[in-house]
Write a protein that binds this DNA or RNA. Structure first.
Lengths: 348, 348
DNA sequence: CGCCGAAATTGGATCGTTACAAAACCGGCG
DNA sequence: CGCCGGTTTTGTAACGATCCAATTTCGGCG
């Protein structure tokens, strides 16, 4: 009847509000943006008209002219493994404070999908990008950083790009906390289990930390590692633990590079009849929800994700403000969460 | 030097590409959208110019005129509890197939944040919205559905709104699978543990299914429930199990309304010295990553999240096509995943 | 009463794209 | 050579907001 079929019903615009309130569209714009220099009277009239029409500003049009979207894209490497939740929370909270909103995207572990996703964000003209975790996105992140302010966080290995800020947990400190804890419990034969991303096995910060800290503690002779060439997961941890525990002189404690890996170790201990923590102590890394489950109660390192997220947001906000300022490389202090999987070394 | 300070560097536009290729901007637009009726020669010239300039179409401008963003907003009630992962994956995959991208948002369990998020999506003029899980978003979802095609999924209770599609797991079927499995193992004293969202305790579909199915199996006399008035989590499950197992004639099996609840039950059994599954069988619901951990190995119901996601996408795509078509209310068939927490009833 | 400066309001240009109708091109045919 | 039908190409008007310079309003003051 009143609308041409085929066209979708258009919502109210600044124009229709202006007509209804009997003012110019410029004034409506001023009111909607809370300008101080409009008279009380006009402001009320405009707001009333807007309410009556159910007016909602069109962010597309706004951003087109203003050049800012107040939106940042967050690419989460692997949504299935919820270590990122605390980080994302801190990030969003802090961004909120800057009037910016985070939109999340899941690349589904597929580099091509990741590519498309980032492309979509860039076409949307987001003000910045955050890459959360290495897996399928490293190359993509590189490219994005040439176009828009970018922050990387929780990459498993150091990345130095011009104009890109990085935020990471202090792996060295985290591993040190674990080893000191185990040492204090009398452990000496402490093994380390981890995986690696497909690209490089060489610079795994946690592994490096294990090696240097063992040395510092005078335990160089006890160093034993089992490093897979795929990312650490439960199965990888399980297999590694079976190998380590099957040795002639098995370790009394196993440190894993992630909570998931530690779970695999726990399962292996179960299967081999080793009691935790009486016969074997096990630690994880990340303090995911998994580790806090009563049935698991894993001693682990809390990377302080919320704080990391907050830092990421601050870096990003800063770089949006001044895109060419020198790069920041932040380390966040982790803490140790002692639960039920660590105890005194056997025979002590 | 060459750019006025203060202004952010503007990227190449359809106009600059046109100039460089020596054609009109209309033609550039046609080429970028893959129109069939441009000559080979022009097409190549334009593409070359675009490549050289690093041109990237501005989705804001495009959407402003076309009226479509090819983007849908997905609000995930609680990102921390990863039951939604499979669903989101199915959803995104299917949307991809329709040329639509999903942007996720985390309301952080805060209704106000949820409100702001949805408002932002609407201002971005997304083509549709998906609400994934009840918690803080129900009212918000109601409002959104008046403005834009909307699909609800995994709401804990049935919602009937005009023009809103719903996709859910068939709770009745899922509970039936569990009870039949336990019955076949010889269990009769099968208790049920669940929570509820703060709004309504009354219509919890899984609880209702438990009641009706127990009756169907001739076990009306054995019905025993422990329903909390907060959402089911590990602690709630733990407390419920302690109460149930402390009874004079304790159940030989406990069915939980979620995996997390089942984990609490497992922990309680542990603490009370009840062996699982020899003394007590336990089942969950959702088949989250948690349940598949070797150390847990929970028998649970798999809601077939991927399929649900796919259906959500189809509903949404359909409703974007024709916003006023009758509402669809889909149920997805779940399946039973038998792991290590269920076994023959004691003394059998 | 007329004029001043500050405050309030407005018109029109602009952002980067698509839509649409009009114009240019092109080979062949009468 | 002029004209015809069909394909290519182009100019111009949207889309819905913001920005900015120009204009109107207004209270007070000489």
């Amino acid at each position: 009847m009143e609308k041409k079929t085929g066209k979708r019903a258009k919502g109210p615009t600044v124009r229709s509000v202006a007509e209804r309130a009997g003012v110019s569209k410029s004034l409506v714009s001023l009111v909607m943006n809370g300008s101080k220099q409009v008279s009380e009277k006009r402001r009320d009239e405009v707001l009333k008209a807007a309410r009556e029409l159910g007016y909602r500003p069109n962010a597309l049009a706004r951003s087109l002219v203003s050049g800012r979207t107040n939106t940042v894209g967050v690419v989460i490497s692997n949504v299935a493994n919820p270590w990122w939740v605390a980080l994302e929370r801190g990030l969003s909270e802090e961004l909120d404070r800057h009037g910016v909103r985070a939109l999340l995207a899941d690349p589904r572990m597929d580099p091509e999908v990741a590519d498309g996703l980032v492309e979509a964000f860039l076409e949307l003209r987001v003000d910045g990008m955050v890459f959360l975790g290495t897996q399928p996105v490293e190359e993509v992140a590189r490219n994005a950083s040439r176009v828009v302010p970018t922050v990387l966080t929780s990459f498993s290995r150091p990345i130095e790009l011009p104009n890109v800020d990085c935020v990471n947990v202090d792996d060295e400190k985290g591993i040190a906390l674990v080893l000191e804890h185990l040492c204090a419990l009398g452990h000496r034969r402490i093994a380390y289990v981890d995986g690696s991303d497909r690209l490089v096995t060489s610079d795994n910060a946690r592994l490096a930390a294990y090696l240097s800290q063992m040395e510092r503690l005078g335990l160089s002779a006890e160093i034993r590692t089992d490093i897979s060439d795929v990312p650490l997961n439960e199965d990888v941890g399980y297999d590694a633990a079976r190998r380590l525990l099957g040795a002639e002189v098995p370790p009394t404690a196993i440190v894993a590079g992630s909570d998931l890996g530690a779970l695999g170790i726990l399962a292996a201990a179960d299967d081999l009849g080793a009691r935790v923590p009486q016969d074997l102590s096990v630690t994880g890394f990340d303090n995911t929800r998994l580790s806090s489950i009563r049935h698991v109660s894993l001693t682990t390192v809390d990377p302080n994700g919320r704080e990391m997220g907050r830092l990421v947001a601050q870096c990003l906000a800063g770089r949006i403000e001044s895109p060419d300022r020198p790069r920041r490389d932040e380390l966040v202090e982790p803490s140790l969460v002692v639960r039920a999987t660590t105890g005194p070394a056997p025979g002590r």
